[in-house]
C-alpha cells in the first residue's frame, strides 16, 4: 500500500493550530510532530529548543481522492499563512514496506532469562547445548521479545513450562510464548489470537521452528473473548459478556500464558479459571501497574490464587493457580 506523506514546517507557537488542521485531513486523525531538542548533560536528558521550527506530518492513503485532499489542505494552510507565516506544504510517496520492515535492521539476537535466545529468522546463530532457541519473524504482530511484558512471561515460562503440560497461549501475537513453551518441552500447545494477521504470523513462526507437531496456531479466543473484536479496535464485546450462548469452557490446560491487557484479563477471568485444570498455572501479563488491583480482584473472584508477582518498569506479570 502507498501513502502520501504531507509535511510542513511551522514555528513553535503555530504547532497546536496547524496540528488541528492536519488532524482534520490525516488518516486516523494522526499527526506527528518532530520538535527540535537539545541534549542535556546526562545521557537521556533533553530540553526542547523553542527557537527552531517544528516539522509536522500527517498521512493519507494514496487513492483517487488523495490529490483533492492535498489541495484542500494546501488551501487551508494558505489562509493560515495570512495570519502567521508557514513553510510550504511538502508531499512525498511512502511505501508500506519502507517503514514496516525498517525496524528489522535493528532487531538482533537477544538473550532473555537463563536459557531463552530469540533469533531473528533472517540471522544465523550457533546455539550452545543449553540454549532454547526461538527463531522469530514478528512481522506486524506483537511479541518481538523486546517488550517488558514478553520478557516477564518468557522468564516465567522457563520455570513453569514442563514436558507433557497441555498449554494454551491466549493472544499469541507472533507466537513467541507458545514457541518458547514448546521448546522448553511443554505440549501439546494451542496458540490462538483473535487477530487473523497475528494468527498467520504465529503459524509461520511455528513452521520456521519446526514444531508443527507440538503447536497448533489459529484464530480464536476463550469464552467471552469470542465476542471481542481485535484489541486495537477497542471492541471488547461487553454487551455479550453475559451471553448464555457462549459455550462453557472446560478445564483442559495445565498451563496458560495470557499476555493481554488488564481490561481483557478482567473480562476473561472466569473463562481463564474454567480452562485451567485444578493445580494448573496461569501466567498473565500486559498489566500496567495502575490496573493491577482490577486484575487481582477479578482473578480472586474467579477462584484463582496468586502465587507470584513480578514487576518490570510499569508492567507486571502475575502467576495464579486454582
Amino acid at each position: 500500500m502507498t501513502w502520501l506523506e504531507l509535511s510542513v514546517q511551522v514555528d513553535n507557537e503555530a504547532v497546536e493550530s496547524v496540528s488541528e488542521l492536519l488532524a482534520r485531513y490525516g488518516y486516523n486523525g494522526g499527526v506527528v510532530a518532530e520538535p527540535a531538542w537539545i541534549p542535556g548533560d546526562e545521557g537521556p536528558e533533553f530540553s526542547y529548543d523553542p527557537n527552531r521550527p517544528v516539522t509536522l506530518r500527517t498521512y493519507i492513503p494514496l487513492d483517487p481522492q488523495a490529490e483533492d485532499v492535498r489541495q484542500r489542505l494546501e488551501q487551508a494552510l494558505w489562509h493560515f499563512n495570512q495570519i502567521r507565516p508557514l513553510g510550504p506544504l511538502q508531499a512525498r510517496h511512502l511505501e508500506e514496506e519502507d517503514w514496516a520492515n525498517a525496524w528489522k535492521q535493528h532487531y538482533s539476537i537477544m538473550r532473555v532469562g537463563q536459557r531463552t535466545v530469540i533469533v531473528p529468522s533472517w540471522l544465523e546463530y550457533s546455539p550452545t547445548p543449553d540454549d532454547v532457541v526461538i527463531a522469530l519473524d514478528p512481522g506486524m504482530a506483537f511479541g518481538t521479545g523486546l517488550h517488558p511484558t514478553t520478557q516477564l512471561c518468557l522468564r516465567l515460562l522457563e520455570r513453569y513450562a514442563q514436558p507433557g503440560l497441555r498449554t494454551l497461549d491466549l493472544g499469541t501475537g507472533s507466537g513467541i510464548l507458545a514457541i518458547a513453551a514448546a521448546k522448553l518441552g511443554a505440549g501439546p500447545v494451542l496458540a490462538i489470537d483473535n487477530d487473523p494477521v497475528a494468527a498467520q504470523v504465529a503459524a509461520e513462526n511455528v513452521r520456521i521452528n519446526q514444531i508443527d507437531h507440538v503447536v497448533t496456531a489459529g484464530t480464536g479466543s476463550l469464552g467471552a473473548g469470542q465476542h471481542m473484536g481485535h484489541w486495537l479496535s477497542g471492541d471488547f464485546g461487553e454487551e455479550h459478556s453475559a451471553d448464555a450462548s457462549t459455550p462453557p469452557t472446560t478445564p483442559q490446560f495445565n498451563l496458560i500464558a495470557a499476555n493481554l491487557i488488564a481490561k481483557v484479563l478482567v473480562i476473561l477471568a472466569n473463562d481463564l479459571a474454567a480452562a485451567l485444570v485444578p493445580g494448573g498455572i496461569l501466567i498473565s501479563s500486559g498489566i500496567i501497574d495502575t490496573k493491577e488491583a482490577d486484575v487481582v480482584t477479578a482473578f480472586e473472584a474467579a477462584g484463582l490464587r496468586q502465587l507470584e508477582r513480578h514487576v518490570e518498569g510499569e508492567w507486571l506479570a502475575l502467576v495464579h493457580t486454582r
Binding site: W3, E5, S19, A23, G26, Y27, N28, G29, G30, V31, V32, A33, E34, P35, W37, F46, Y48, R57, T58, Y59, L94, E96, D98, W99, A100, N101, A102, W103, Q105, H106, Y107, P138, M140, A141, F142, G143, T144, L146, H147, G173, L232, S233, G234
Partner: peptide, 30 residues
Amino acid sequence: VVKLQLPAGKATPAPPVGPALGQYGINIMG
C-alpha cells in the same frame, strides 16, 4: 524525540505511528 497526536485507545500500526517510529528501529506493535 517524537510527539504523536492519536485517538485514545485506538492507535494502530498504520500511519502515522508506523512511519514515525519504524524509521528509528523500535517495534511498532510494542
